[in-house]
Design a protein around this nucleic acid. Structure first.
Lengths: 265, 265
DNA sequence: GCAAGGCATGAATCTACAT
DNA sequence: GATGTAGATTCATGCCTTG
C-alpha cells in the first residue's frame, strides 16, 4: 500500500481501483457525480439579473438511469472490495442520485449503519416557490457487509463533541463551502462546482478513523479529503479523472503543508 | 369516486387499487412496510432491563430485496396511475427501505419534488453506541411524471407557517406519536408499531391539498390520514390489509367525528 | 478601528403559457 | 404532445466598501 499513500492518481476510478489490494483501506469517502438532469439552455436568474451557475459539467452527464446505475455499481463494487472488514465507507448524494446509490449498495451486500443528514445552514433558496428549499444532502455510512465487526467508530469522542449527548444522524449542521475556503480559478470563479466543506469531511474522519489509518477517495475533486486527512494525521490517497482538478489539488495540498510547517517552526 | 369517499377498504392494496379510476386522486400519502430485517429472537434491552418492542409483524416480512421490490413496484405503479396530473404523492420510509422505494419511483417515471426530512425531537437512543442515533425518517414528495404542471402546493401558506420564510425540506421537526395520541390496545400496549404523528400528516395535507380534495392512503394502519383529512375538510379513502387495524381505525374515526360534532353544537 | 450596509453566491431536477 | 420563450422568485453568509 505504501506506494499509494499521499498520491492523487489521475485516471478513471473504476480502472485505477483495480490496482488496489483487497481489504486494504480503513475509510472510503466518496462524492460521486449526482446526475442532476438539469434542463439544457435554461438559465435561472436572480431578481437582480445575475445568473445562478448550475452544475453542467461533462462528468455529471449520463444518458439514462441505466448508464448511471452501471457506472455506480462498478465503482461501489471496487470500494467494497478494497475496504477492510473493520473499515467503513461514506457516500454523499442528493435526491437526484442517492436513492439509486443506496439501492445498489444494498444489492452489493454493503450494510448500512446510518443515513446521515447534512443540514445546510445557508442553502440556495427555491426561486420559483414551487418546492421546499432543498437544504440538505444525504450521507450514507456503511460497512463492507453484514458480518463486519469491530468497525471503527469513535462514539465517545463524537458524544463529547456533541456536548455530552450521543450524536444523531441529524446533528450534522454545517454551512456550504464558501468564502476563503472555496477555491477560485484565475478569473475568481469557483474552481470546482461542488467543493465540499472541510467541516463535513472532518466530522467523517473524526467519527470513523484513527491516526495512521488509510483514507481513500475515489472522486478527489479539489482534494478536500486529502487536506482534512493531513490535518488529522491520517494517511490518504485518491483518484481524480480531470487533470485540471488533479493539479489544483496538488497545489492546494502543497500550500497547506507549507502552512502547517510554518506554524510548527 | 363517490363510492370510495370516507371508506376504509379491507384488503390487499395492490388488488383493491385496481378498482380506482385513472387520474382520480389529488393526494397520496403512503406509509408502506419498511422491511426492517430485524434478527429474529434477539431482544434489545434498555439499561433498566425492560425490553424495546420492535416491529416484527407479519406484514413487514419479506423473503428478499427482490420480493420487497416487486411488492413496492406494484403498489407504486397503481398510485401513479390513479394520481391526478395535478396531484402529488408522499412516501415515507427509513434507510432500510427508502432507497429502494425511491429508485423504483424514479424508474416508474415519478418525478421528485423534494425528499423531506422528518426530524424526530424524541428519537429512540442508540443503545449500544455503535451508530449515530437514528433521528429521522425520509418523506419523498413527487408528482405523477416529469410533465406534471400546476400541481397543488400551498407555498405561501407554508411560508406563513414558517415565520415568513420559505419552508425547507429540513424544517419538519416533530415528536414521535406518543402519549394520548398513541392508540393502545386492550392491554395498554401500542396498537400499531409504526403509528405516525398527526402533525406530520397534517403538514403534508396542508402543504399539498385543498379543502374538498381527495386524499388516498394505501396503507391506512390506524387511520391517521383519515383523521387528519376529516379535521382539514379533505375527502379521503384508504386500504388496510389487517382486519384488526381496519376496526381500530373505524372506531377512531367515529370517535373523532363525535368529538367534532359535540364541539360544533 | 469599528459599525453598518451593499453585494456576491451556493450540486437548482423551474413554471406557465403561447405556438 | 413537443418546443420555445417570457416570467416570477429567494435566504443565509461572508466579504468588501462606505461612513
Amino acid at each position: 500500500m505504501k506506494k499509494f499513500i499521499g498520491k492523487i492518481i489521475h485516471g478513471d476510478c473504476m480502472e485505477e481501483m483495480k490496482n488496489i489490494p483487497n481489504n486494504s483501506v480503513d475509510l472510503v469517502f466518496a462524492d460521486p457525480p449526482y446526475y442532476l438532469q438539469l434542463s439544457k439552455g435554461k438559465r435561472l436568474k436572480r431578481a437582480d439579473g445575475s445568473e445562478v451557475i448550475p452544475v453542467c459539467d461533462e462528468w455529471d452527464k449520463f444518458e439514462s438511469y441505466e448508464e448511471y446505475d452501471a457506472f455506480t455499481e462498478k465503482w461501489l463494487k471496487e470500494c467494497q472490495r478494497i475496504l477492510k472488514p473493520t473499515g467503513t465507507m461514506w457516500v454523499i448524494g442528493m435526491y437526484h442520485n442517492i436513492f439509486r446509490v443506496g439501492t445498489i449498495m444494498q444489492n452489493l451486500g454493503i450494510w448500512f449503519l446510518n443515513d446521515v443528514i447534512w443540514i445546510k445552514t445557508d442553502p440556495l433558496p427555491n426561486f420559483n416557490g414551487r418546492r421546499f428549499t432543498n437544504a440538505h444532502e444525504t450521507v450514507i455510512w456503511a460497512v463492507k457487509n453484514k458480518n463486519s465487526k469491530n468497525y471503527t467508530f469513535n462514539y465517545e469522542f463524537m458524544k463529547k463533541m456533541n456536548g455530552g449527548r450521543q450524536m444523531k444522524d441529524t446533528d450534522w449542521v454545517f454551512g456550504l463551502c464558501k468564502g476563503k475556503e472555496r477555491l477560485k480559478d484565475e478569473n475568481g470563479i469557483k474552481a470546482h462546482p461542488t467543493q465540499k466543506p472541510l467541516k463535513l469531511v472532518q466530522q467523517v474522519l473524526l467519527a470513523s478513523s484513527n491516526k495512521g489509518d488509510i483514507v481513500f477517495d475515489p472522486f478527489m475533486g479539489t482534494g478536500t479529503t486529502a487536506v482534512v486527512a493531513e490535518a488529522l494525521g491520517r494517511k490518504w490517497f485518491g483518484i481524480e479523472r480531470e487533470k485540471k482538478y488533479v493539479e489544483i489539488s496538488q497545489k492546494r495540498i502543497k500550500k497547506y503543508l507549507k502552512e502547517i510547517n510554518k506554524k510548527s517552526d
